[in-house]
Structure formats: C-alpha cells, structure tokens
Design a protein around this nucleic acid. Sequence first.
DNA 1: AGTTCGATATGACAAGGTGTCACTTATGTG
DNA 2: CACATAAGTGACACCTTGTCATATCGAACT
Lengths: 204, 204
Amino acid sequence: MPKQTFFNLPIEKRESLISAAMKEFSRVPLSEASIANIIKDAAIPRGSFYQYFEDKEDIFYFLLEEYSSTLNQRFRSILVKEDGDLIPTFIESYRMMLESIQNKEFRYFFKNAFLNMNYRIENTISKSISEEKRNSRFAEVAKLVNMDLLNIQHESELFHVVKIIRAVTFQNLIQVFALDLSMEESIKNYSLDLHLIKNGVYKK
Amino acid sequence: MPKQTFFNLPIEKRESLISAAMKEFSRVPLSEASIANIIKDAAIPRGSFYQYFEDKEDIFYFLLEEYSSTLNQRFRSILVKEDGDLIPTFIESYRMMLESIQNKEFRYFFKNAFLNMNYRIENTISKSISEEKRNSRFAEVAKLVNMDLLNIQHESELFHVVKIIRAVTFQNLIQVFALDLSMEESIKNYSLDLHLIKNGVYKK
DNA sequence: AGTTCGATATGACAAGGTGTCACTTATGTG
DNA sequence: CACATAAGTGACACCTTGTCATATCGAACT
C-alpha cells in the first residue's frame, strides 16, 4: 500500500502521479517499467516517489486493486440480479470486463498485466476468492450463491467450483490479449468453456 | 533459443553453465535473476555469455523447455497406457509432476517459475497444447484421446476440454508453491477439481 | 514576528545491472 | 605457413534502483 504521505497529497498531484504510472504500466509490463519515466512524466523528484511508495510494485498493485474492487462490486451485484446463478453471473461479468478493456486508457495496462499474470496479480484482481477458505470476502459472496443449482454436497466444495471457473476465466482473458481476439470470439469461447464446466466434459 | 555457439561448447562447459543458471533461477525469479551471478558461478566472462545466449530469458526458457519436453513425452505415454482416458491421465501426470518437484534441484526453480507464471511460461511448459488449433503437436495428442468418453460433438471441442483441464492443472500447481501444500493435499484438491469438471458443476 | 519541531521535499550518489564492441586468441583449411 | 572465420574477452557506456544528508514547509505557540 502507498504510504500515508501519498494520500495527504493535493488531489491534482496525486492524479497526475496515477496517470503517469498508468501510462508507464501501459507501455511495458511491470518488470520493465521504470520509475524514472513515471517521475519524469509526473514532474516530481525521485526522492518524492519513495516518499509515497515503497517501490514500483507498490503503485502497480495499488492501481490494480483500485480497479479490481470495482469489478468485484459489480460481480456481486450481478450475482444478486441473477438470483445466485453462478454461470450466467460469470458470463455477464466477463462481458463487462471485456467492455471495460475496450477503453484505450485501460487496454494496454491490462494487456501488460494479463500477459504477465502471476500469482499476486491474479489474487489482486480476484481478491474475493483468496486461497483462505475462511476468507470473509469469499464467505460473503458464498452467501449470495444459489447452491441448489450446484452438484456439490458441501459448502466447502463451492470453493472448488469458483476456483475452477476463475482459472478458466483468467485463461480466457489472457487469450484475448495474446491472440488479439474480438469480444464476440472471446465470449463465444468463454461460453463454450463454461457450458462444458456446467454439464461436465464426460458423457453421463 | 541459445545460439549455435552454445551447442558447440564442450559438454562440461555447457553443463557448468546450465547448472549455474539453474542455481540462479532457483534463487530468484526470472525478473530478479542476474547474469552477473550466472557467469561468476560458471566462471566465464561476460562477453561469452552473450556469445551463447541472447539474454537471460533465452537461457531460462531453454531450461524450461528442456524439462517440459520430458513431461510432454511422459504425458503421451500415460495417455496411451490409460487407453485415451483424459482425466486419469491428467491425474497421473499431475502426480508425476509433483514427484519431480520433490527433487531439491528442481523444486525452487519451479517454485520461481510457477509463482511468476505468465503466458509464455505456461505455453512453454504445456507446449503440446498451444493456442493454434491446427497445431500439429496438439493434433498428435488428440489422436490418442478416446473421444467417445467425452461429452463433445466435434473434435474442435476437445481443444476446449484440454484447455480447461490445463488451466485448472496450472492453478493447482501454483497453489502447491503458494500455500506449500503437501503432495497428498494437492492431489486431493486436484482430483476433486477434475471430478467436478468430469461430471459437471451443475446438477443434472 | 519569531521560534520551534515534525513532516515533507529534493537530487546527488553508490551500488549494481545490462548489452556492446574493439580487440585478442583459437581453429581449420588450402 | 598464411589466411579466413569463429569464438573469447573485459572495459565501457548507459540504465536502474533505493538512500540519505540537507533544505524547505507549515502549524502551533510564545
């Protein structure tokens, strides 16, 4: 997390920093991003950057988290709208995600994030589903799910279901960027994947 | 790929370089690895390194690929042994993979690789299943699969089935390292995941 | 206005990384 | 032996990062 100093900053300075960082992380992936470019663009001295952030990871994950919390909120409201039906909710959320990356301002930021997805990035984006089963965020979402639809004996298996769908969701998102898929193509692929997951890949 | 010069090297020099690189990539993830450490350990001059490799990515992916081709071969032979039954094959392969990372020499190399998994790493490891549907490697594997067991209408859907299982497989492997799971725990999780994928997560 | 003090700002700097290149050395061939 | 081609070498230019001594700010209190 950024240090308190960052949050004490006048809003325009804070936003100019954020915008400079977005620009840099859109240009290249995290590992190649340079603090020098960010501070040049934001016109702040090097020492100040370290006054606000631990390092470039700090600001990167801050940006990612800020955006992800929006996604998570929207996921939850869709889940409610869909009466706890998990698969339509994921498909609808997926479409929403694809729409938001049409936006030039975010597109390359996410391209760099997804093509260099690692454990931490993945968990930052889908933070409601952390590895901790007793995670309170997960528990909150779990309450909204209609488990009667699912082929599970116990609430703990819901965790597995969500984990599977999540893995497939990320893979599909990565492919959007890797193969430069159109929205329709990607949604088609994703829907087919979820269809198989829903009904099972083996014959009955 | 390494340059020809590398392959022309006397075997002991080549192996000392490989061993030095393994050591460095076991110490830290690719992005933090330093060529300086590799050449110091292998006792070769800096210029020579660049005679053999483009950069550190070059040698890293070479090592990864070398190991992965073993995995892929073994996957195929298990698939034959299991009469083309996909899910037992994946489970058996998963166990094999877990066993091989018990080996100290590989464990931390893979830990660093999996926790920093990105698109390129994932595709290097599972290179038989590339994004190209008409990929010849995939076609070869496809021939070995018993499609009668599967709930699919068309061969092209096999691609989706494999993609789904692959995504879940990687996620499970990452969790081994992230949560320091034991072999048994991880196999239990993985089996449950594949069970759900096999039979479907929704009630019939 | 002056003083004080903690918080914030600043940029020069050390340490360490990368890739290159002019030059040296080795190797093989007519 | 001489020549051409391949391989080996390390100093160097150029970047990065994180730190730290020093400067500046601003609120609080005489």
